[in-house]
Amino acid sequence: MKELICILCPNGCHLQVDEAGDYAVTGNACPRGAAYGKSECTHPTRVVTSTVRLLGGSYPRCPVKTDRPIPRELIFPVMAALDGVTAASPVHCGDIILENVCGTGANIVATRSL
């Protein structure tokens, strides 16, 4: 039995995951918690948020995120990939800045119009 704290929402449910029993989850307040408990014990994923360089905008950085969770072990490779990216103003919230980052299937999208 593994004890986890669900990170999907600020409720922070205290989950118990039965690793021997097909990762059955108890302690979750919603179905997303059950899915999180299983995925966290088998292949943990995270949404990455960061910034990229921005030219011609009112600020020098544009905030971005992966549009879906990526494998946790790819967080640093994704950060390295963002290092070389430059966006140009005008950028609209939701614009794809980088497609299929590190082969994850996730796109890097802008999170602010600048």
């Binding site: 929402c9 949404v47 948020t49 910034t51 905030p63 919230c93 999170t111 602010r112």
Partner: peptide, 19 residues
């Protein structure tokens, strides 16, 4: 606050601060 986790109650989806 460019990290995500905002809006789960109000918008029923996970947004970043700027969004």
């Amino acid at each position: 606050c460019i990290h995500n986790g905002f809006g789960l109650h109000h918008f029923q989806e996970e947004l970043t601060g700027p969004e």
